[in-house]
Design a protein around this nucleic acid. Structure first.
Lengths: 206, 206
DNA sequence: CCATAAACTACCCAAATTGGGGGGTACTGT
DNA sequence: ACAGTACCCCCCAATTTGGGTAGTTTATGG
């Protein structure tokens, strides 16, 4: 099947280089090629891409916002971010916005091709550092100051449950739940729910 | 630098095949080779691996639990899961436990080598489907019934903040916060915080 | 230009929740 | 035998929550 590809990148040279490169493949067809999201979105239903190569630092609507808009209108489209940014916040914002892949601009030419192939096969191509960032975001703190009971209760606090509710689900009295929470607060050096949840997330305790 | 590799896999044939294969590389050295986590953990400080290849379905301690224990004792070790499981829960449990990579057993032999190389370079090798699973776990619902204001407030509810606290941080009155929350509850068909957060997570609204 | 929706403000009230105080048991390793 | 840790329970005052009701302003799209 022919892949319909749209490129959104404000550097004209890069854009054209990508277009030439991708059109070398018989099964790839660059159907659109824009310097900003606004233009690309205008032609979205005509272009009907299944793959979008997206820069992040664009004039006007950013690549992140652009990703959200395209995903909303064309949920089946697979968007691959190609950017110089490899800091955590940008990466996660892009993935939350709906990006399927995330390459940094230092990737070699072959990587672009293989990334598209990977997306078609149902994968999620990422540069090494990005993949590590993403995987690390799941990892819990291995040296938590909390006991397993406390961790369990803190998790439920973070789910918005009341003490009574927690007590009922883990079959202890409400008062015992409160006792544990008091100890959690002391250990985390906080004195309310919100701060406890904040620290729990910061320190990856739950 | 020489890579010290430990293999934990209950199928002896696979274990020995891996050992032979990896030892072909001058820069790889399989320093330990076990059929269960208990044995491996016993010899952990002697083996001092920087890379562990770990099965999940093991007799005794599971690969997930084993990963936690090894990570606790040897935080610098990079653990690559090699398993037949590719369902979401298992994958995320493994990553939360501290796994750096996740390959499915249908991967070809070269993939094992390249995965180790990737880990050394600071990457996080994953099979295509796994990578897609992981990336998808970040994606928000593109068709949320909530307004942006409501989404903003719901996020803060999920952070454990009180109405007063939310009101102060987004510079509106407490009463207005309550107004929005009432609308959120109607739209999500719930009538308390905990259920709202639950639905928000299920439907990926925040 | 009008209709509609979103965002905002305000007040009432009963019930539930929260955080801080206290006291107590059981098991561990030294 | 003793410190340390985890676990369990009760009381109380202050705050929070959820539900009801009634209205204004602002912005956007047909």
């Amino acid at each position: 099947m022919q892949q319909r590809i749209v490129i959104i990148e404000d550097n004209q040279q890069i854009r054209e280089a990508f277009t030439l490169l991708l059109n070398l493949r018989d099964d790839f067809s660059v159907v659109g090629n824009y310097g900003n999201c606004e233009e690309a979105i205008k032609n979205l239903s005509d272009d009907a891409p299944n793959i979008v190569l997206m820069d992040i630092d664009l004039p006007g609507i950013s690549g992140i916002e652009g990703t959200k808009i395209i995903k909303k209108n064309l949920p089946a489209a697979n968007i691959i971010i190609i950017t110089v940014f490899e800091n955590g916040k940008t990466v996660f914002d892009a993935l939350c916005a709906g990006a399927t892949g995330y390459l940094t601009k230092n990737s070699d030419r072959d990587r672009l091709m293989s990334a598209i192939d990977e997306v078609i096969k149902g994968g999620a191509p990422m540069s090494s550092k990005i993949a590590r960032l993403v995987v690390q975001s799941f990892q819990k703190n291995t040296n938590s100051p909390l006991t397993s009971r406390e961790t369990e209760i803190l998790s439920q606090i973070a789910e918005g449950k009341s003490y009574t509710n927690i007590a009922d689900t883990i079959f202890i009295s409400k008062e015992t739940v409160k006792y544990h929470i008091k100890n959690i607060y002391i250990k985390l050096q906080v004195n309310n729910k919100a701060d406890a949840i904040k620290r729990a997330n910061e320190d990856r305790l739950i």
